[in-house]
Each structure stands twice: as structure tokens, then as C-alpha cells.
Simulated assay, not measured.
Amino acid sequence: MVDSIHPPAEADAPSIPVRRGPEPVRPRQRRWRRRRLNRYTGAPFVLISINLLLFATFFVWPAATGLLYSFTSYTGVGDAPWVGLANYQRLLQDDAFYSALIRTLIYTAGVVPLTIVLSLGTAVLLVTDYTKGKTVARIIFFLPWLISPIIAGVIWRWIFGENFGLVNYVITKLGGSEVAWQSNANLSMFVVIIAAAWGGTAFNMLLFVAALKNVPTAYYEAASLDGAGSWAKFRRITLPAIAPTTFIVVLLSVLHSMKEYALFAAINDGGPGTANNLLVQYIYTKGFERAQIGYASAASFVLMLILMVVAIVQLAMNRRKES
């Protein structure tokens, strides 16, 4: 009777599960996680260490040395006396520097549009379904990119030679008179522009081919249903779709054209005389032929600043168009 009156013991009571919070992270686990995070963070630096070493060896160190020489009157031998900003002041007062800069801008303004038109037109022909022999055509059009600029310059100099050139030979056989391709400054510049556009078309063509293949075909099908013609499709669909690639091609073409040297040296060596000397030829003449390393270094950094300004302006214009 006593047992039936008293409540059951605590041992017989049903157990209620209790939820516990997450266990605190131990110091060892935290250290292990930090080490693992650092290991994964440092892996990319290990993978690109060789590229960083090459970049520092062949770009950063020469650039720092050139910047230091630009404030000296170093001649390539002996000491390098400090002259401060004298080289830059002399450069801004040199008429030959401004003439070379103007010719560089004229050359760039002639090469870049012609290269864009040729490379884009060739890419469109290679992508369209109506073109036959695309594989062979791509190999032929890409060959100029594989030829050294020096060899390409020699070929174009032989083609447009005054006394031995192929073009003048054909002209004289047809009853005409020889054209002064080399002794006329304007014609000589024209030959270099044609040669540069011919050499730069191949690589840009590949970029445009890849961009054209990424344009969705559904856009063209919808435009065909609306009655749009080929030119309307190209202007309304193709050009906006490949705008990022066009920007890259224009930027690279401008930078490459403003640094051109080998092609000019092989075709006319900046001639006749110094009439077609560009900025790079001007820098080479001052630095290596006249042993004015400090002055040439100052001109090189001015050219680098011009290229940086051109790149920044083009990037800003591209961002405005995207926004």
C-alpha cells in the first residue's frame, strides 16, 4: 500500500532529450584551419612564381634601370653622372622628337583601321556557310603571322623596289613608268602601312573568328523572320555581339603600331633619310648609334606614358559604352 501511494522514483522517469549547441572549436582545430587556408591561398603564387620571376627579370628590373638612367647622362661606358630632369627638358624642346611622334600617330591611324577591316572581313568570310575551302584558307591567311617582321620587310621591299621591284616591273611591262616607292617619303610610308596591315591581319582574324562563332544563331533566325537583310544583321547583331573582341583588337593594334620598329628597319630603315623615323627609330638612333643612353631612356619613358594614356582612354571609353 505504501508503494502504491508514493510517486515513482526518478530513475524510472522517462528521459527528455536535451539539445546541445555546437561544440566550441578547439585551438588546435583553428590552427589547422588557418594552415589549410594559407596553403590554398599560397598555391596560386607557387604556380605563377616562374612567370613572376621572368616578369621581374626581363621587365621590372630593366624598367627600373632605364628609369634611373633617364636622370643621368650615361653613355653606355663608365659612370652615369646625375643630371636630374635635363634629359626630359631637352626632349620637350627637340623638334625631331615631335616629328617622330607625329609620324607615329599617322602610321597608327593608317594601320589600325585597315587591319580591323581586313581581319574582320576575312573572319566573316571564313565563318559564313557559303565559303568553300575554309581550312586551307585559314592556313594561308595565318601564314603572315608566322613570318618574322624582318623577313616580311625584305619581301615587301623586294615587291616595291624602285629598280628591281616586282610592282615596277609589271608597271613598266604594261607601258608605264617606274614609281619612286622608296625615294618618296609618302609612298614609302604607304608601303609600310600596307605591309603592317598584311602582317597583323592573321592574328586578329583568329580573334574575330572565335567571337563570330560565339554569336547565338537564334538572333539571326529571328532577324530573318522579321525580314532583315545581311547588312542589317551584321550591323544590328554581329557588331554589337563582337564589341568586346573588337575593343581588344583595337587596343592591341594601337599599342603594337606605336612600338613598330622591325618592319620599318627592313623596308626603308626610316627613309628616305629620316623622313619616316618613328619614335622607336628615334630612340634607337639616340641610344645605340649616338651612345646617348640617358637621353634615349627618357624618350622611352615618355613613349611608355603615351601608351599608358592611350590604353586608359580606350578602357574608359569602353566602360562608358558598356554602362
Rank of each mutant, 00 (worst) to 15 (best):
T238S: 11
S257Y: 02
I293P: 00
V249P: 04
K259D: 14
I248V: 14
R236M: 09
T274C: 13
I267S: 07
V249A: 11
R236H: 14
V280I: 15
V250R: 01
V249F: 03
Y261G: 04
D269Y: 06
V280D: 13
N268C: 08
F247D: 13
V249L: 00
S297W: 01
N268P: 04
T285G: 09
V280P: 00
F264V: 12
Y295P: 05
F234G: 13
R235D: 13
A296N: 04
T285E: 13
A262Q: 07
R236Y: 14
N268S: 10
T246Y: 04
L279R: 01
I267P: 02
I267Y: 00
I267A: 08
A262K: 01
T274M: 12
G271S: 09
K259C: 14
V280W: 00
L255F: 00
A262G: 00
S297R: 02
Y261R: 01
Q281A: 12
Y282L: 12
V249E: 09
S253D: 11
V249C: 11
S297M: 05
V249S: 06
N277R: 03
I237V: 11
F264N: 04
I242F: 02
P272A: 15
Y295F: 14
E260Q: 09
Y295M: 06
L252C: 09
I293H: 03
T245R: 03
I242H: 02
F234R: 06
Q281Y: 09
I242V: 14
F264D: 13
V254S: 07
T246Q: 06
L252N: 09
Q292D: 15
Y284L: 09
A296R: 03
Q292K: 05
R290V: 11
F288Y: 10
I293D: 05
Q292I: 07
V254I: 13
S257C: 09
I293E: 13
I248E: 15
M258H: 01
Y282A: 03
P244V: 11
P272S: 08
S253F: 02
P240T: 03
A265K: 00
I293R: 02
A241E: 15
L239M: 13
K286M: 10
S297L: 08
L278W: 07
A262H: 01
G271A: 07
A241C: 11
Y261H: 00
S253C: 08
F288K: 05
P272G: 07
Y295V: 06
T246D: 10
G270P: 03
T238A: 08
G270W: 05
G287K: 02
Y261W: 08
R235Y: 15
G287E: 13
G287N: 07
S297V: 02
L279I: 11
N277W: 01
A291G: 08
I242T: 03
N277M: 04
A265V: 14
A262T: 06
P244T: 14
N277A: 08
F247G: 13
Y282Q: 05
G273P: 01
